[in-house]
Design a protein around this nucleic acid. Sequence first.
DNA 1: CTAAACCCTCACGTTGACGTCAGAGTCAAC
DNA 2: GTTGACTCTGACGTCAACGTGAGGGTTTAG
Lengths: 142, 142
Amino acid sequence: MRIGALSHLTGASERALRYYEEQGLLRPLRRPSGYREYTDDHVHTVRSIRTLLAAGLGTATIAEVLPCMVDEGGQLAAACPDLLADLARERNRITAAMDELRAAREMLDAIIAAPVPPEAAQALDCDEAVGTGAGAPRTRSS
Amino acid sequence: MRIGALSHLTGASERALRYYEEQGLLRPLRRPSGYREYTDDHVHTVRSIRTLLAAGLGTATIAEVLPCMVDEGGQLAAACPDLLADLARERNRITAAMDELRAAREMLDAIIAAPVPPEAAQALDCDEAVGTGAGAPRTRSS
DNA sequence: CTAAACCCTCACGTTGACGTCAGAGTCAAC
DNA sequence: GTTGACTCTGACGTCAACGTGAGGGTTTAG
């Protein structure tokens, strides 16, 4: 398949796919014309990449991790202790990030679920500042 | 307290604290000299800001949320339906992000805990590429 | 055989939350 | 009253993962 099809299948833009290759995460074959040719394996690879990117890993780290996930299910392990240490650190980072997300979500929940005292409902008019009355909210777009 | 002390207490850099003020998240008093003067409340505010930033909220959204959290425990609710919709969207984003983090962590766990076949341990020499043997890993620093 | 759709390689632009440096004023201790 | 730590306001730099054309070949349906 060519880059357009892979883009459609994975949700990654063509630019992103070329960027992944540039960073050493993807190595498609090339037609004589220069066109990139991808296989079905690349679909899974791209999904893995996106998951790890979403988790905050950088492309450099992902490039080291990807070879350890060749065929899913019976994949290789990380051989180098350096990489293993990196992965452990990333794992800790991810766990910490999840804790932060949990805390932030509870914060929002507290605000969303908070009872609205009728007096406060009058005071807050959605077009006026709330605090000391000196500043209006910033530009609010979208 | 002045900006250095607040920075020390919260872990936020002085630059970050000035930036928060610039974005309307913080409104310290000013001495005649121009020095910023913070109160103990600001410590909690900054911590809230950092939590929400870590959750992926932008400063503009946080600026709208902060007035709803004046005194912790018995805080006001969001009055504007616009803001409420924003918060619900953010909440969904956060939950989705947590799911992605979970998936990525399981991915890493699978690699970390994977058994190392002795043949593969030989093949991977930590200084050589793994795939087709055409390219070495990128520059690896730190 | 031609036109639309697809793809290529540069290469500069974007976004958000700050880092960093310059030049200058302020505060606290001695 | 002076030194050294602290703070101020600009204002440009950074970093990562792309977005966005420009200018030009390639493929394929008719």
